[in-house]
Nucleic acid binder design. Structure first.
Lengths: 155, 155
DNA sequence: ATGAAATTCACCCAAAAGTACTAATGTGGT
DNA sequence: ACCACATTAGTACTTTTGGGTGAATTTCAT
């Protein structure tokens, strides 16, 4: 990327110089201004397309570099330690797991035989403890930290 | 595409005219030729990048065979196939990615320069196409299917 | 047994998310 | 040039989620 920019800069500078040099010799007298401008425009447009292509290329390879798997499943003792670290209780972890499975508060309440109010209390506490604002962020953070025993959440 | 070309031609023509007009009035006397050329170069470079982006966007898969190396990460073409499979558009995938990052509709709207209404429309369509009811489920399903280029969603 | 933490639930309010339309404009492919 | 689809955005409405507070019960360790 840096190389592309430098190369482009050098080319631009060089060409500007060349054009100016030529201008005083032949072009101004021989060709009309339209053609002169047109030539510059055409050249830099092509150059621009090339640069644009380079940029999008680089972006993609950066994408590929970024890609790496981080599926980590952990043991019970490790989990306890992490829960402690964030001050999460067992029940909160349970709720969090269900949240991660995409369940609504209503569904969580049903499956844990709780009222939705309770689930809401739990989730509020979870968000506070994980320092997030939404359940989606909580899920993200939990995965980041590695709070889930099961990797496969699709149930 | 046709419009793009036409628009580009019009802009080019108009700009050439304007430049020529200005030239006789002020520029030649007031500014040095370097700045003059530089301005044209800069403008057409940007225009070129834009045009290049428009063109290369569709021909990515052609270039891909040449430049992309095989690895375990999902490639652009694979992604396209999967998006096609579920009838998801590019924009929808973009929104879905941000949803997976835990962003709110408001935040997504801001970062994509859209209204929240539009984001809601997109997400509704996403949910319908992925056959889910909530964003958390959509994220889950998307990961299951493998719709994300980046696994690391924490940004 | 006592106090701290955990669990449960209620109520109210606000914000965010989601549904169901309609519709204008843009774009791509044939 | 046309058609299908994508993108954008609106209105109006419902549901879900989240925040804050208070409080009753249970659990568990010191």
């Amino acid at each position: 990327m840096k190389k592309t920019i430098i190369l482009y800069g050098v080319i631009l500078a060089a060409l500007t110089g060349i054009l100016k040099f030529i201008e005083y010799r032949f072009l101004v007298r021989d060709l009309s201004t339209e053609i002169y401008i047109g030539a510059i425009a055409l050249f830099f447009t092509i150059l621009g397309i090339w640069v644009g292509y380079k940029i999008t290329r680089d972006k993609k390879s950066a994408f590929e570099k970024k890609y790496s798997k981080n599926n980590k499943s952990i043991s019970e003792s490790e989990l306890s330690k992490k829960l402690n670290q964030y001050g999460l209780s067992r029940r909160e972890h349970e709720v969090l797991t269900l949240i991660a499975k995409g369940h609504s508060n209503r569904e969580i309440a049903d499956s844990l035989f709780l009222s939705t109010n309770t689930v809401k209390t739990h989730s509020s506490n979870i968000f506070a403890k994980l320092d997030v604002k939404r359940r989606t962020q909580a899920v993200q953070k939990a995965k980041e930290i590695g709070l889930f025993l099961e990797v496969n959440l699709s149930d």
